[in-house]
Structure formats: C-alpha cells, structure tokens
Computed example of a mutant assay.
Amino acid sequence: MFEHRYHMPQRTAKLIHEKILEKDNFLVVIHEHPDGDALGSANALGEMFTMLNKKYTLFCVTPTPDQFHFLPHTKHITSDETVWKQTYGAIIVCDSGDLRYAGIDELIKHQIDTYIINIDHHVSNERFGNLNLVIDTSSSTTEILYKYLVFNKMEINHTIATSLLTGLITDTGNFSNAGTSRHALAIASNLIRHGAKLNHIRKHILQDKNLPTFKLWGMVLNRLEYKKPFDFVYTYVTQKDLAACGLHEEDLEGIANLMNNLNEGNATLVLRERQDGTIKVSMRTMRDTVDVSKIAQSFGGGGHKKAAGFSIQGPIEKALENIWSTLEKTRK
C-alpha cells in the first residue's frame, strides 16, 4: 500500500491543523501570476475552510487566468489590497519560496502580530513562516496538501480532489517532467477515486489552446537560439508579440515545459517581457548534472533543480547580456 505520510513532517502538519481548528478568519495567499498548483492549493484550502465553517479570504496580487475558473473558489480570489486591513487568525502562504514572490512583502507589514503558515515545495524556500510545511521533494504544493489532509484525517470531496489533481497535473507537465514521481502518480490515482473530475481538467488545462496561441508559440519557437559557451537554448516573447496575437501572458503557459522535449542543450530559457518592462525568465532542464535553481538564485529567483525562474530588468537584449555576463562570472 502507498504510504501517504512519506516525507510528511508530522509535528508541523499537526500544529498547522490545531491552529486552523483553534482560530477563525484566515487569509490564503498565492503567488502573483498564479499557475495551476497555486490555484489548486487555494481552491482546496477554500473548500476545506468551507467544510470547517471557517471564515477565509483568498488573495493574489494579480488576476487569475480565466482557464482556471472551472475551480469553484477561483472566482472568490481577490486582488483588493484592503483585505490587509483586517485581522486574521493566520495567513497561509502557498506555493511561494518567499514573500517577495508572493508579492506581499510590503503588504504584510500592515499586519500586527502576524502568524504565517508557509506551505510549499520549492527547494529555495526561505522558511519565512511561524510554521513551515515545506517538502522540496514533492512534485507540487497540492501533493503536500493532499498528504496534510490525509494525515489529519480530513475529508477529501470531489472539489478538493479536482483542485489537488489540477495542481499535480500542471506542475508535472501532465506527468511528463522531472517532478513526476511514483508518489505523485499514486496520489493522482487516489484523487480520481475521490471524485476528481479529470475530464474537466483536461478540457480547461490540457486542451485549451486556440489558433492565436499556436501562432504565438510558433513565433517564439522560430526564435530559438543556441548559446554554445553555456550549452543553453533560449527564446523570447515581447509585449508586442502578445498584442499582435491578441493574447496575454498566461497564454504562454506550457511553452517552457514544451522545450523540455529538446534533446540539445543543458538547459532551456524562455524570456517573457512583462507590461512593466521587466523580463520573466523560465528555466528548464532534464539533465541530472544541471541545477537551474542555483542559476535562478544568482539572479534573486528560485525554484527546483529541474525548473526555476527569476525576473530581471529589460529590455530583452539587455536582459540577455546580463544573463550571459553573470553566468560567465560564476564559471570563473
């Protein structure tokens, strides 16, 4: 039988559960530009609080992508910063290695006697919480939440199951990237038995690309370049590209994982220009000898050994010069 408590810090999981049962009115925070793991985590916690008859608020500094609105609590996620004027029993930060990535490093200063619960799976996590349920060997934050619920004997209904499976599928690239493990696959199987709606996830997450999106992806893939000194393959997308196709940043989700199919290069980089002119860099590798999280950390970012990211000042040309010069210095 699969052991659901594998790598579960039991004392921390118990203390978090006791805090949730003891307190009322929680603030759940997910990182900016949220992905399926962050949104799946928020939805699972929202449903759990509903079942426990607890007050809660779901917060993200940026809007949520429309494709995740099939998860029922997504529509309750707010970006209204006035929620930080309230008092909470605890603030639960999910899927964020630090408060800067969550976008709340300044907002949280409005709170007095803040109690933070940190639930995450990034190896670069800074353990910023009063309680830190951080398991960097997990495929996703939703995998950790599943183990937490099982350990504390909490009910997993079909809404929670669908939310958690969404996070598992998106963070493992539909069980195709290096984050996929036998534990993730076993949990996915159990979530389906709990009523997870795989067809809903497939329709909204895996089969959601339209013609303009594929045209944009074609533009990005057509720009692929090989940087021989570092054995890296890279490409980029600008705000002008997005405007030309009538698309948004979230329409690029998945292209970094797609580049994992390349059998050339030690790592791949996708540079995305944001509206404020900064550049988001997503790094991926399938090589056991390469740790892209260490590279990301040198630019103030983080992530996992096989998938990481960071932000850097634009424009694209300047960002690339900065990246190559920094990497050259680290090699010396």
Rank of each mutant, 00 (worst) to 15 (best):
N199D: 14
R331P: 14
G301I: 00
Y146Q: 05
E264F: 13
F151W: 03
L262N: 05
I295V: 13
S282W: 03
P72H: 06
A256D: 08
C94L: 11
H7S: 14
L206G: 07
T235P: 03
V220N: 02
Q313Y: 05
D251L: 09
V134D: 07
Q86P: 04
F232T: 06
D105L: 02
T180R: 09
I323N: 10
M283S: 09
T78M: 09
T278F: 11
R100N: 13
T213C: 12
I255V: 10
F26C: 02
G89V: 00
N266H: 15
F232P: 12
L133A: 07
M48E: 11
Y146T: 08
I91E: 01
I279W: 02
L211G: 03
L224D: 10
K14R: 12
N25K: 08
N266R: 15
I156Q: 03
H122K: 04
Y146L: 05
N118L: 06
D136P: 11
I169T: 07
Y236K: 03
K240W: 09
I205R: 08
Y88T: 00
K55D: 10
Y115K: 05
Q297Y: 08
A102C: 03
E126C: 07
K75W: 00
M286E: 15
G179M: 08
W217G: 04
N210E: 14
I116A: 03
G309Y: 01
D291P: 04
L271A: 12
L221W: 05
V270T: 06
I187C: 05
F230R: 10
R100V: 10
Q313W: 01
I77T: 01
L145C: 08
A244S: 10
F70N: 11
D251F: 09
I116F: 11
E47P: 09
K215D: 10
V61A: 15
S298W: 13
F310A: 03
A102S: 03
H194N: 14
G314A: 07
V29A: 07
G303R: 07
I169P: 12
I295A: 02
E273V: 02
L206N: 07
R202D: 14
D288S: 14
